[in-house]
Amino acid sequence: MTPYSRPASLPETLFLLAQGQPLLLAGGTDVYPATQAQWLTRPVIDISAVPELHGITRGPDGLRIGAGTTWAAIAAAALPPACNALQQAAQEVGGRQIQNAGTIGGNLCNASPAADGVPPLLVLDAVIELASPRGLRRVALADFLTGPRQTLRAADEVMVAVIVPDAALSGASHFVKLGARAYLVISIAMVAVRLLVVAGRVQQAALAVGACSAVARRLPGAEQALLGLAPQETAAAIDAAQVAAALAPLDDLRATAVYRAEAAAELLRRALATLAQDHAG
């Protein structure tokens, strides 16, 4: 195959992907910085012009976001309040130039533990759709991400879309990111929180924390503790010890494990307090 190809359809992409071990290039914002080498040994398939990977649509199975959708497009889309966290994250991924190029599918396939797109999609119970010569398959995002920079994507598969089921599009969500400065930083910790409040009581709660474990995680124990509370009571119900135990955070150059555990709990409280304010207002 040629060193660079720019397929114009999904079948053509799969055809090319089945030859050798090409590198899939979407927005290109992670591929080059992750490359220490002067040379890559693999041919590049530029999937930015594949129409099947673009667009945000509401269909029978929920909200469908094409894997090639840029962060700028996600931030500008008209989405329900449950997607507020995703749209807030979209505006914190790098600067605007990165948001114009970087895609949601690239963010998920690169599988950085600090990927800003992951916690907002975890609280939306997102499902990944993958295409290969064998057909289409769907995998829950929580299962798709298996470790730092590791996913269930097979070498001949391309991510087509991220699907948010209708049931998870209820309520409202909020995203909070902690970095060493306000802009252009890799997260030390970030959280996404989604609450469905019915008759003044929390009926559904979804909490996710990123950059504090090998793979961003939901916190089922902490979620359970919020059910039935008034929104204003939720922030105080976050138990820092429980959060730390669920995350088992790591020391790295950006923060220590102890700091991360405290930060994660505090960010969860702040996100919940923000959502509670919206309900009070």
Partner: peptide, 19 residues
């Protein structure tokens, strides 16, 4: 590089322009 592996039986005929 490896040889051609055509995509058969899904999403119609593969329309590769690159050999």
């Amino acid at each position: 590089m490896t040889g051609v592996v055509p995509v058969i039986g899904w999403a119609g005929q593969a329309q590769a322009t690159t050999q």
